[in-house]
Protein backbone atom coordinates (compact mmCIF):
# COMPACT_ATOMS: atom_id res chain seq x y z
CA UNK A 1 0.00 0.00 0.00
CA UNK A 2 1.40 3.38 -0.95
CA UNK A 3 1.20 6.29 1.45
CA UNK A 4 0.04 9.65 0.14
CA UNK A 5 2.57 12.50 -0.13
CA UNK A 6 0.97 14.23 2.82
CA UNK A 7 1.28 11.16 5.03
CA UNK A 8 4.92 10.77 4.02
CA UNK A 9 5.54 14.45 4.76
CA UNK A 10 4.03 14.24 8.25
CA UNK A 11 5.83 10.97 8.86
CA UNK A 12 9.22 12.38 7.88
CA UNK A 13 8.68 15.78 9.49
CA UNK A 14 6.17 15.23 12.25
CA UNK A 15 4.89 18.50 13.72
CA UNK A 16 4.70 19.10 17.43
CA UNK A 17 6.25 15.91 18.70
CA UNK A 18 6.85 16.10 22.40
CA UNK A 19 5.54 16.28 25.91
CA UNK A 20 3.75 18.89 27.97
CA UNK A 21 3.70 18.97 31.76
CA UNK A 22 0.98 16.50 32.60
CA UNK A 23 0.46 17.94 36.08
CA UNK A 24 -0.19 21.49 34.90
CA UNK A 25 -3.75 22.75 35.35
CA UNK A 26 -3.71 24.16 31.83
CA UNK A 27 -2.69 20.89 30.21
CA UNK A 28 -5.04 18.18 29.06
CA UNK A 29 -3.67 14.73 28.21
CA UNK A 30 -5.33 12.11 26.06
CA UNK A 31 -3.87 8.62 25.87
CA UNK A 32 -5.68 6.30 23.46
CA UNK A 33 -5.04 3.01 21.75
CA UNK A 34 -6.20 1.20 18.64
CA UNK A 35 -6.99 -2.39 19.58
CA UNK A 36 -7.13 -3.35 15.91
CA UNK A 37 -3.40 -2.89 15.45
CA UNK A 38 -1.95 -2.13 18.88
CA UNK A 39 -0.96 1.47 18.11
CA UNK A 40 -0.81 3.91 21.02
CA UNK A 41 -1.13 7.69 20.81
CA UNK A 42 -0.78 10.48 23.34
CA UNK A 43 -1.98 13.97 22.52
CA UNK A 44 -1.60 16.91 24.89
CA UNK A 45 -2.96 20.41 24.75
CA UNK A 46 -2.22 23.56 26.74
CA UNK A 47 -5.28 25.77 27.03
CA UNK A 48 -5.28 29.46 27.84
CA UNK A 49 -7.60 29.69 30.85
CA UNK A 50 -8.79 33.17 29.89
CA UNK A 51 -9.65 32.58 26.24
CA UNK A 52 -10.03 28.77 26.16
CA UNK A 53 -7.76 28.83 23.13
CA UNK A 54 -5.45 25.85 22.64
CA UNK A 55 -2.07 27.55 22.50
CA UNK A 56 0.12 24.51 22.36
CA UNK A 57 -0.34 20.92 21.29
CA UNK A 58 2.09 18.01 21.43
CA UNK A 59 1.85 14.37 20.47
CA UNK A 60 3.72 11.15 20.69
CA UNK A 61 2.54 8.17 18.67
CA UNK A 62 3.87 4.65 18.48
CA UNK A 63 2.35 3.11 15.40
CA UNK A 64 2.21 3.12 11.63
CA UNK A 65 2.84 6.06 9.31
CA UNK A 66 -0.87 6.85 9.04
CA UNK A 67 -1.28 7.01 12.82
CA UNK A 68 1.72 9.32 13.14
CA UNK A 69 0.50 11.54 10.30
CA UNK A 70 -3.05 11.67 11.71
CA UNK A 71 -1.87 12.76 15.14
CA UNK A 72 0.67 15.19 13.70
CA UNK A 73 -2.07 16.80 11.64
CA UNK A 74 -4.43 16.81 14.62
CA UNK A 75 -1.96 18.88 16.68
CA UNK A 76 -1.60 21.34 13.81
CA UNK A 77 -5.34 21.70 13.53
CA UNK A 78 -6.18 22.13 17.20
CA UNK A 79 -3.55 24.82 17.74
CA UNK A 80 -5.14 28.27 17.74
CA UNK A 81 -8.65 26.85 18.04
CA UNK A 82 -10.84 27.19 21.10
CA UNK A 83 -11.70 24.00 22.94
CA UNK A 84 -15.21 24.10 21.47
CA UNK A 85 -13.86 24.55 17.95
CA UNK A 86 -11.38 21.71 18.37
CA UNK A 87 -14.21 19.37 19.27
CA UNK A 88 -15.66 20.03 15.82
CA UNK A 89 -12.75 18.28 14.14
CA UNK A 90 -13.93 15.03 12.61
CA UNK A 91 -11.90 12.02 11.67
CA UNK A 92 -13.38 12.27 8.17
CA UNK A 93 -11.63 15.64 7.78
CA UNK A 94 -8.33 13.93 8.58
CA UNK A 95 -9.07 11.10 6.14
CA UNK A 96 -9.72 13.65 3.41
CA UNK A 97 -6.67 15.78 4.12
CA UNK A 98 -4.29 12.81 4.24
CA UNK A 99 -6.06 10.72 1.57
CA UNK A 100 -6.08 7.70 3.89
CA UNK A 101 -7.16 4.38 2.38
CA UNK A 102 -10.14 2.57 3.97
CA UNK A 103 -7.93 0.16 5.91
CA UNK A 104 -6.25 3.13 7.66
CA UNK A 105 -9.37 5.07 8.55
CA UNK A 106 -9.10 3.83 12.13
CA UNK A 107 -5.88 5.86 12.47
CA UNK A 108 -7.90 9.02 11.96
CA UNK A 109 -10.51 7.78 14.43
CA UNK A 110 -7.70 7.34 16.92
CA UNK A 111 -6.59 10.94 16.38
CA UNK A 112 -10.12 12.23 16.91
CA UNK A 113 -10.43 10.11 20.05
CA UNK A 114 -7.12 11.54 21.26
CA UNK A 115 -8.33 15.14 20.81
CA UNK A 116 -11.53 14.32 22.72
CA UNK A 117 -9.64 12.54 25.47
CA UNK A 118 -7.22 15.45 25.87
CA UNK A 119 -10.03 18.00 26.01
CA UNK A 120 -11.99 15.74 28.37
CA UNK A 121 -9.01 15.56 30.70
CA UNK A 122 -8.56 19.32 30.62
CA UNK A 123 -12.26 19.85 31.36
CA UNK A 124 -12.14 17.45 34.26
CA UNK A 125 -9.15 19.25 35.72
CA UNK A 126 -10.80 22.62 35.36
CA UNK A 127 -14.28 21.61 36.42
CA UNK A 128 -15.88 22.38 33.06
CA UNK A 129 -19.10 20.46 32.50
CA UNK A 130 -18.66 17.65 29.99
CA UNK A 131 -22.36 17.34 29.19
CA UNK A 132 -22.55 20.19 26.72
CA UNK A 133 -19.95 18.78 24.38
CA UNK A 134 -21.26 15.23 24.60
CA UNK A 135 -24.84 16.27 23.96
CA UNK A 136 -23.80 17.83 20.66
CA UNK A 137 -23.11 14.38 19.21
Amino acid sequence: MAYSDKVVDHYNNPRNVGTLDKSSEEVGTGLVGAPECGDVMRLQIRVNPETQVIEEAKFKTFGCGSAIASSSLATEWVKGKTVAEALEIRNTDIVKELALPPVKIHCSVLAEDAIRAAIGDWKKKNGVAETEAVAAH
Binding site: A34, E36, N91, P102, V103, I105, H106, S108, V109, D113
Partner: peptide
Amino acid sequence: GEEHAGKGK
Protein backbone atom coordinates in the same frame (compact mmCIF):
# COMPACT_ATOMS: atom_id res chain seq x y z
CA GLY B 1 -9.04 -7.09 12.21
CA GLU B 2 -7.97 -3.81 10.73
CA GLU B 3 -10.50 -3.74 7.89
CA HIS B 4 -13.33 -3.58 10.41
CA ALA B 5 -11.61 -1.08 12.62
CA GLY B 6 -13.06 2.24 13.60
CA LYS B 7 -16.64 1.43 12.68
CA GLY B 8 -18.00 -0.16 15.79
CA LYS B 9 -15.71 1.56 18.22
